[in-house]
């Protein structure tokens, strides 16, 4: 039996091959580019390495910064490989704008907006937001983040989360969730635990791959995106594109959840480091003479 959870293809959205990043998009017919991407590229080499040289269970390099902007209540920037995302959080504040009359009496309203810089993809985008794909992403972001935010602490208020993809190279949704989590931490919004997202794929029909890049997405493997609360191990959102055998699902899911746990560790370390740096002035994390941690 096959899993027919197949949903909108995530990989097919942008078409360009990495070999032709600089400028060579011009003049070539579209079909030509497609062909370049779909030539029998193996997701996993004989040596067990992926297209970008990673091992199947290896994440892309993650670099992040908490507190990028000063005007927002919370902001964060994350780089996962070449995917770069900025997130800002405003609130909790009094509901305003369209949500003015929609506020809830017992919990906070979480408002998310996903947008992509027009120059973020290989092919220039026409609109940064408002298209179906972005709207879908906004809804999915909200789903994952609402599971993590302790909304019951902020009745009659609104929390705005805005993410901006500056450069897209696969796993946009994952990077957005991770960046938004960091921004929420920076804003001091109460969280149950971190919401962390990671994607996974299946190579050669048997080996699960973690943290799928754009090249791997467009090569045409299946793609499973999971947003999880990694400490309790709960899944807040799961989305799958393409089909593979049902028997493989548990191990692909497990690989994605493992990825979430790894990312969680990295994010947690970044948060601790940030707090230590910013709180140093007030003596946070310092040990006083009696040996007591302040």
């Amino acid at each position: 039996m096959d899993c027919h959870a197949a949903m909108r293809g995530r990989g097919g959205g942008f078409s360009y091959s990495h070999a032709a990043v600089i400028g060579s998009r011009c003049g070539q017919p579209v079909g030509c580019r497609r062909a370049a991407a779909s030539t029998a590229m193996e997701l996993l080499s004989d040596q067990g390495l992926r297209l970008d040289g990673r091992r199947p269970d290896e994440l892309r390099n993650i670099r992040c910064k908490i507190g990028v902007f000063s005007q927002a209540d919370g902001s964060a920037y994350i780089e996962q490989g070449n995917t770069k995302v900025l997130a800002t959080v405003y609130g909790p504040h009094q509901p305003r704008g369209q949500a003015k009359n929609k506020f809830l009496f017992d919990e906070a309203l979480v408002n998310c907006q996903y947008s992509m810089a027009v120059f973020s993809t290989g092919e220039r985008k026409r609109r940064p937001r408002g298209d179906r794909k972005s709207q879908e992403m906004s809804i999915h972001l909200r789903q994952a983040l609402e599971a993590a935010i302790r909304t019951e602490l902020y009745p009659r208020s609104q929390i705005d989360i805005y993410v901006e993809v500056l450069q897209a190279d696969g796993g946009n949704y994952c990077a957005c969730v991770n960046a938004a989590t960091l921004a929420l931490v920076d804003a001091g919004v109460g969280l149950r635990e971190y919401a962390v997202a990671c994607s996974a794929s299946l190579a050669n029909g048997e080996i699960p791959l973690v943290d799928v890049s754009h090249l791997e997405e467009s090569t045409g493997g299946p793609n499973l995106t999971v947003a999880a609360l990694p400490i309790s191990g709960q899944v807040a959102l799961m989305e799958m594109s393409q089909r593979f055998h049902c028997d493989h699902l548990p191990k692909v899911l497990e690989r994605a959840l493992e990825g979430c746990k790894d990312i969680h560790r990295i994010l947690d370390e970044a948060v601790r480091k940030h707090v230590e740096e910013t709180g140093r002035a007030s003596g946070w994390g310092q040990v006083d003479r009696a040996g007591i941690v302040l």
């Binding site: 405003y90 704008g97 947008s115 705005d160």
Partner: peptide, 16 residues
């Protein structure tokens, strides 16, 4: 020229 006022700057820029 295309200018995009990101909602990151201020919530007033959300949507249109």
């Amino acid at each position: 020229f295309f200018v995009d006022c990101s909602a990151n700057a201020t919530p007033e820029f959300e949507g249109k």
